[in-house]
Every structure is written in C-alpha cells, then in structure tokens.
C-alpha cells in the first residue's frame, strides 16, 4: 500500500514540476464547457471523427463544407470540399451558387478545434431545414495532422 501511494506521489510531483517548467503550462482547470464540441453536443448536433471524415471524402459519401473565409479556403482545404463561409451562407444558398439537397449528408468544418465557424454553419443549415448535418470539430488542422492531403486553388 505504501508503494502504491509512493508511485502516485512521485507521478504527481513529476507532472506538476514538468508542467510548471513548460513555456505555456496547461491550466489545471480547462474551459471545456465552452469548447466548440461541448456546445455542438448541447445544441444536439452530431460530431464526426477523423476516420468518418476520411471515409466520407474517399467515397464522396457526403458534402463537405468549409466554413472559413474564402481566402483561407483557396489557400488549402480538404479535397472535394466546397467553400461556404458561414457569414454568407444564406446568400450562397438563396442565390443558388451552392445547391444542397435537404437530406444529403453534410459535414462542416473550419480551421481548428477552437474555431466557431463550422459549428455556426452547421447550426444555420439545420435552422434552414437541412436534416443530415454533422460537424467535424477538429478542422483542417486535425485533417492535416492525420496525414490528409490538402487542395489549394492558387
């Protein structure tokens, strides 16, 4: 029992010391309730992981919508994705520049797991009547980290 406790104390001391020595220590209490994934779940939105997105992109099984500004989209986006910045999404839909069937599976994303545009776009589409919407919360950063290729338009 003493040794079990000693391992715990040693691990606690090591983790506290190493975290304290880091240039940007991880705060002991994170703001996870405000995290985009938590907000998406609270809004009743379904999340998809990188594996599901990779399969959907490979099989063209869903419309992937990039909610970032157009310049960011042109610089690099998930292959096959369409640009739909969330702040002009209504305009794009009403002007028929982007046609979406109501039931088609749609996956939205933005830059990273701390950006809001993908969530905002997904919520907007759901309010507009689209029924099969999911959010890839990891964004382009997670796509790249998983070794995914990126298309650019330059």
């Amino acid at each position: 029992m003493f040794r079990v406790l000693a391992i715990f104390i040693l691990a606690t001391a090591c983790s506290a010391s190493v975290n304290w020595l880091r240039r940007a220590p991880l705060p002991l209490r994170g703001e996870w309730s405000k995290h985009v994934e938590q907000r998406a779940l609270q809004a009743g939105l379904q999340l998809v992981g990188i594996g599901t997105l990779q399969r959907a992109v490979a099989a063209h099984g869903a419309r992937v919508l990039d909610a970032r500004p157009p310049a960011d989209f042109r610089a690099g986006h998930i292959p096959g994705a369409q640009s739909m910045p969330f702040d002009i999404a209504a305009e794009l839909l009403t002007s028929m520049q982007i046609e979406l069937q109501r039931e088609i599976p749609i996956i939205t994303y933005c830059a990273r797991n701390d950006c809001d545009e993908g969530l905002e776009l997904a919520l907007f589409l759901r309010r507009t009547g689209y029924t099969n919407i999911t959010l890839f919360a990891g964004g382009l950063a997670e796509w790249r980290a998983a070794g995914g290729t990126v298309e650019s338009e330059r």
């Binding site: 715990f8 090591c14 209490r29 994170g30 996870w32």
Partner: peptide, 19 residues
C-alpha cells in the same frame, strides 16, 4: 467533469511511466 480533465491529462502519463 471539467475540473478533472486537465488534471487527469497531466497526471495519467506520469502514472503510466512511474508504474
């Protein structure tokens, strides 16, 4: 809960290594 996520993330790998 929120209050435990970062603590677990910091402590767990050191427990793995020490154990």
């Amino acid at each position: 809960p929120d209050v435990l996520i970062n603590v677990v993330a910091l402590l767990l790998p050191w427990l793995e290594i020490c154990a």
